[in-house]
């Protein structure tokens, strides 16, 4: 699970630069929450493209998490990149005024998709490609909103586990305060990822590394000393979130079908 942060940074920054260049962009936009993942992403983007070519959008819901906004602002002043604060409360409230709910997950999903809609709007306004900020842990256990925070033009950190992002953050010089924050999806005050999932990121990442990177079976992982309940929980989370990692299936009728046997590279003619 150990990484060489300098080498990883060189690969990722080169990837951001070259991929943007291929698609005719020289700017990137990303949502900055004040948490670790989006901060690391912003650090990488500024290294890759320069401070003037990175626009960070800070998109709080009203005054729910004032500390996160302060942390995000601190990142912006550290990086000297471009930033805008856009309060999503009016848009989100307008919707829930018509379709009220007490379910915090529904509210959280709506907020994530509101932020996505703003990012795509600014992507077009600014001719900037959206950088995704979902890490490997979240992608594998499906801890994210489909077409919400998982939506992006390009994901530079999606093959790094949360614990590896922490290693990278130290090397990049991310302030200790942000590195030590308790990870949260910001669904409600006091909510934490680890509290909601029921496992720590260290536990999840170790199990994921065994199951995914080392291709061990659940039985093998359990036999090597991991708690069966935890291994099975992680496995179930992976299984029930596969739909979030895929394009939806298209019914095959013709002899050549999008998503089945119409097969072209993403970087077509680049």
């Amino acid at each position: 699970m150990k990484i060489n942060p300098e080498f990883v940074t060189s690969v990722i920054t080169k990837f951001i630069r070259e991929e943007l260049n291929k698609f005719g962009f020289n700017r990137a936009v990303l949502g900055l929450s004040g948490g670790l993942d989006s901060t690391v992403c912003a650090f990488l983007a500024v290294r890759a493209l320069g401070q003037d070519n990175v626009l960070t959008l800070i998109m709080p819901y009203g005054q729910t998490f004032p500390q996160d906004v302060e942390d995000a602002k601190a990142v912006v002043s550290l990086l000297q990149c471009r930033a805008m604060i856009i309060d999503i409360q009016p848009m989100v409230d307008a919707y829930f005024h018509r379709y009220p709910t007490d379910n915090p997950v529904l509210k959280g999903n709506k907020m994530a998709r509101e932020r996505m809609a703003i990012l795509y709007d600014f992507s077009a306004r600014e001719k900037a490609l959206i950088l995704g900020t979902s890490n490997k842990t979240e992608l594998l256990i499906g801890y994210g909103t489909i077409h919400g925070d998982m939506a992006c033009g390009l994901n530079p950190i999606g093959d790094l586990y949360k614990t590896q992002i922490r290693q990278l953050a130290i090397w990049l010089g991310v302030p200790e305060k942000i590195r030590n924050k308790v990870p949260t999806a910001g669904l409600w005050p006091g909510q934490t990822d680890e509290g909601e999932i029921g496992l720590t990121y260290e536990e999840i990442d170790k199990i994921l590394f065994e199951l995914v990177d080392l291709r061990r079976s659940r039985q093998e992982v359990i036999a090597s000393g991991f708690d069966p309940k935890k291994v099975n929980l992680v496995w179930e989370m992976i299984k029930r979130s596969e739909f979030k990692r895929r394009m939806p299936p298209i019914i095959k009728l013709s002899s050549r079908t999008v998503g089945h046997d119409f097969l072209y590279p993403y970087d077509w003619d680049k």
């Binding site: 150990k2 990484i3 060489n4 300098e6 080498f7 990883v8 690969v11």
Partner: peptide, 10 residues
């Protein structure tokens, strides 16, 4: 393709 990370560069 490059794949697999360690503490070493590359």
């Amino acid at each position: 393709p490059g794949r697999g990370m360690s503490e070493n560069s590359g």
